[in-house]
Structures are given as C-alpha cells and as structure tokens.
Amino acid sequence: MSIVQAKGLVKQYGDVRALDGFDLTVKPGQIVGLIGPNGSGKTTALNALLGLNNLDSGSLSVLDKKPMLQRAKMMQSVAYIADTGILPSWMKVSELLKYVAAVHPKFNIVRAQEMLSRTEIRQNKRVSVLSKGMHVQLHLAIVLAIDAPLLVLDEPTLGLDIVYRQQFYDTILNDYFNEQRGILVTTHEVREIEHILTDVVFMHRGKAMLTTSMADIAEKYIKLTATNGDPLPATPLSARKTLAGTEYIFDNVGRADLSAQLSPNGVLSTPNLAELFVALVEPNQGVMQ
C-alpha cells in the first residue's frame, strides 16, 4: 500500500504551470527526496499533498484520504516541518505542547518533553525568544512525538548551523524512521541528504523528470573522469571540465564495458545527485550547488 499516491497532478497559476502532470509515490520504508531548483514546483506539490492547495486536475490520495477535502482527518497521520519557523511565536513552549496534546490524538506529550529535556529549550520560554536552531529542535520534538506514518519535510534545515543540520537528520533516522513509515523531503542542500535517501524524484518544470531508487542510480549512471582527448566508449549525457580532467556522465553503459575500454588515466565513480540532476536537466551548465 502506498502512503502517497499522486498521478497527473496539474496546477496552473496564471500563465505558469506549477505542476504539469506530476506523479509521485511514497511507500512505507521509503525516504524520498524531491529534488529540483526554485520554481520547479516542489512547494506546490508538497502543499497539494498537505491539503493546502486545490489542484486543477489529477488524482491524489494520502493515506487513502483526499488531502484538500479531508485535511483535518489526514493530518492525524501526517507530520510536517516547513522551511522557516512556523510555530506560533506568542505561545510558551509548555502552552504549545499542551495545545498539541489536546487536539492531536496521536501526540505523546511525555515523549516530546523528554526530547526537549535533552536540549537547552526551557518550557517556560516563549517561542519568539528561541533561536532558529532551537525553533527547529522544538518542532522536531513535537513531530517526533506524533505517531504518524508520513513525515513531510520542506527544506527543514534552511538557515541552520552545520551542527544542527547533522543532528536533525540523525534524529530523524534514529527516532522516527522505520519500515512502516515514509518520509518525503525537499531541499536545496542535496549533498546533505543523499546518503539517507532510499529514492529520489527529480522535478523540473512541474514534472517528475526522473523517479528512481538510489540503488538504481548506482546501477544505471556512471561518472567517468578522464583527461581530455581520451576516446569515449559511448555518447555521454553530459561533459564538464574540471581541474582533474573532464567529467562525463553516462547512462545505461555497463560498468564492465566502460572499464575494459578505459584509458589508464580514467576514473569511474557514481555521480552524486547534484551532478546527475545537472547532467539530466542542463547538460551543458555547471553543477547546481
């Protein structure tokens, strides 16, 4: 059973097609990265499956619910962290916890308090006085105390210190993720999350340009770094000059075939997500990020 099932989503804003037949599936045990530049439709897609946006067409179900029509019911089973602090600044931490405990049937306040006790956040403080890092820690403590099968993260570490960022994903992996749950995450900092992803969706101009598991990427795509002038075994997806030579990215070329024809200076590796994205979207441009 899929947690998220989206097919052919279309959303038009004036002249702009924010979503143009977008497909997405999130299953239990998957951590899906939604990767794409600004304006590619990531936020529109997330908003649609959080029940925040109407769609023009397409079919969408999240945990067998229609997000826009059944948002309240659906959000019992979906947790969400946004790119900037969205917790109400006028509330005290303790008040916020009590509020969530009162309206959310799957929230375990003791667990949230226990997680907060491991941080420097004091419960008598107002949300407005917390630093950006603490704000995210607090939201994370709330979200991880909710027994929800789907966690949606929209640029959750934007503007965070490096220490908090590392902790953030470690905590998600250790304290939230398991085989019954799914995570959907968007970020610009692709390198930061690619080691935790099980699957990736490249988004471009409102479409899912590539949907694949991380394991398949290693199977299907190869990066060859070679000195200029070496004969190429096949036509590459992209070529990019670097100090070490030229980096070529190939698809559907067997690693063994490539090795056999490789010049002594050539090095084979698996392209990272940023390199692959650029190779697929804009083969002649520089690497994103």
Binding site: L50, G51, L52, R71, A72, K73, M74, M75, Q76, V78, A79, Y80, A82, T84, G85, I86, L87, P88, S89, V100, V103, H104, P105, H139
Partner: peptide, 16 residues
Amino acid sequence: DRSVLFWKSMPVSDLQ
C-alpha cells in the same frame, strides 16, 4: 507569520 502552516498541520478543521 506563516504559523497558519503549523495550525493546518494539526488535525483541526477550518470550520472548527
């Protein structure tokens, strides 16, 4: 202040 995104992430309907 975008806190609407937090309020809407709670299982509370707009009518309520």
